[in-house]
Every structure is written in C-alpha cells, then in structure tokens.
Simulated assay, not measured.
Amino acid sequence: MTTVSAHVRSTRGGVVESVHEVALVVLRPDGGTFLTAGDPARPVFGRSSLKPAQTVAVLRAGADLTDDEVAIASASHSGEPGHLAAVAALLDRHGLTPEHLGCVPDLPLGTAAMRAYLAAGHGPTPLAMNCSGKHAAMLVAAGGDPDYLDPAHPLQVACRAAVDELAGPVLGASVDGCGAPAFVTTLAGLARLAHALARPTDPAVARVAAAMQARPDLVAGTDRLDTVLMTELPGSVAKSGAEGVLVAALPDGTAVAAKVLDGAGRALGPVLLAVLEAVGLAAPDALRAVAAPPVVGKGEQVGALRAHLTRATDG
C-alpha cells in the first residue's frame, strides 16, 4: 500500500491561485488497498455518490424498472430533455405524475439545459431537480406513498440497510439537498461501494452497474465527468456527489473513492486522471478535456488544473 498526500493546484500565469486537498482511497481489483491519501476512516457524507446503493434497495423492494429507468434512478442528471422525458415516462408508466415527487423544485443542473429551460418559460419544478430520477424510483418502490422520504418509512430503512451493506458502516444521517435521507459513511466504505460496482456479485448490484454503463448519458449529462468517463472508458462506473465526492470503478476493476476536503467538485477530474496514471490506464483526450479543463483568461489558456500525489510511505 502506498500512502500519499493529494492535492489539486489551479495555476494562473505560473502562479498557484488555489489549492484543494483531497482524501483518497484506491482499491486493487482484488479488494486490497493500493493507495490512500488522508484518513480512510474519515466520516463522509456520500451524497449522490450513494445513489447506486439506494437504487439497489429500490430494486430489492420490488420496483418495476426498465434498465434505462435503473440508470436514471442512479443519476444526478443535468436536466436535459432526454433526462426529463425519462423521469416523466417512469412516473407515467406507474400512474404517477411529477406533482407526486417529494424532491424540492429546482432548475436543471446543466448550464445549457438550464438556459434552454428558462428560455422555454419554465420555472423551478421537482421534475427538473437533478435527483428526480431517484425520487421517481423511490416513489414507485413505495407504491406511491407520499411519505416515502420519511426516514422511518420501510423503503428508507431498506435504503439505509443497503448503504450500510455496500458502503458502510453508516455513522449517521441528515437530509440531502433533494429532501431524501443523506448518510454518513467512511471514505473506505465508499471505496468498498466502488469495488462492489467494479466486481458485482449481487444480482441487484450487477444490474445497477450494467444499467449505468449502458446509459452513461442518463447518469449525468453532456460534458459531465461521470458520463464522459463511462463513455470513453467502457467498463467504468462512476457516480459523483455534491461537495466534491466521487465513487468510481475502473475497467480493470480498480475502485476509487475521493473526497475534496473543501468541497470543490472541480478537483475530482484531475484526481481521477492521476489515479488512472497511477494504475497504468490511459486517459482518452475527450476525458482529459472534461476532467482538467484549461484555466483561461480572455478566452485563452493561461493556467492549468493539476493533481499532485506526493508519496509519504510504502507498506
């Protein structure tokens, strides 16, 4: 096992403008620890990176979902037309409407999607909220029960149990931005979730991983890290979360869990590129362009966003 310090530097004109410290756990395909940065036992709100585990609970509860619906259930979608149509179709197929959703009204997450949505005269709605696919699937699994978000509801108890099983132990809970329970696990636990997605042995986990791999466009959106990674490196599974969290399974079975300590999501891409290099996997140019976009001034590159893994000890 290699222990490193990990941080991402943003430079402008040759001067370091910002630094983001990162905690990191990387597991080998066999589940052994390959690399760590920071404390693997650090408590972490997994936020939306835990959605694959929550989808597992939804499937185990007997929800009737197509494979595309499994993908949108695991998504933090950008709110592009295809995303909204997929969620609306899932609800309609079960006799439900967007008005039944318990997530907070919001605008699309993607900048281009939000502009188009506003230009069409729309305002914030639960359907446009990036977690609407998860909520739609939960609502279906709960038989349309409007109290499906209550932490004591059998579905949420099952979701907590699935998170504990796949990414636990669960150390605590609060409320996520969308209104669903948000669970605290550890960085090491998030890495175990990534490993479960990389090497699934449970049928429900295997179905979630396969659905995300088959429809990466539904999981995030255009020019989003999760979607581009899964598109450019087939066999990958990736799910990022708010406040700089990433869970990723790479094509060779390597499992990655990262948490940017200051919550800056822009640091996740450079860290992912550094991990790919460390395990000997080439990053396609299209992935590099999204993961580490240039720092620009007046439309021209004047700096860069780069991860630095500095070795501390070998064990």
Rank of each mutant, 00 (worst) to 15 (best):
V4Q: 00
S5L: 14
V8P: 00
R12M: 05
R12E: 10
V25P: 00
V25A: 03
P29I: 05
G31Q: 05
G31N: 09
G32R: 14
F45M: 14
R47Q: 14
L50D: 07
A63P: 12
G79S: 04
V87L: 09
G95C: 09
P98W: 08
H100A: 15
L101M: 11
D106Y: 12
P108V: 11
P108D: 06
G110P: 09
G110Q: 06
H122N: 15
P124A: 15
G133A: 14
H135Q: 14
A141M: 13
A141E: 10
A142T: 13
A142E: 12
G143D: 09
P146R: 07
H153K: 07
A158F: 09
C159W: 03
E165W: 11
G168W: 13
G168I: 12
P169K: 14
G177C: 10
A180D: 10
P181Q: 08
P181T: 10
V184Y: 13
R192G: 05
H195S: 10
R207N: 04
A210C: 06
A214I: 02
A214L: 11
R215N: 03
L218R: 04
V219N: 00
A220H: 02
D226K: 02
V228T: 12
V228A: 05
T231D: 07
E232V: 10
P234A: 05
A238D: 10
A242T: 05
V256D: 01
K259R: 15
A264I: 00
A264V: 06
L268H: 01
G269E: 00
V271N: 00
V271A: 00
L273R: 05
A278Q: 09
P284H: 03
P284G: 03
P284W: 04
D285A: 15
L287R: 01
R288D: 01
V290G: 00
G297H: 15
G299Q: 06
E300T: 15
E300F: 15
Q301Y: 00
V302L: 04
G315L: 13
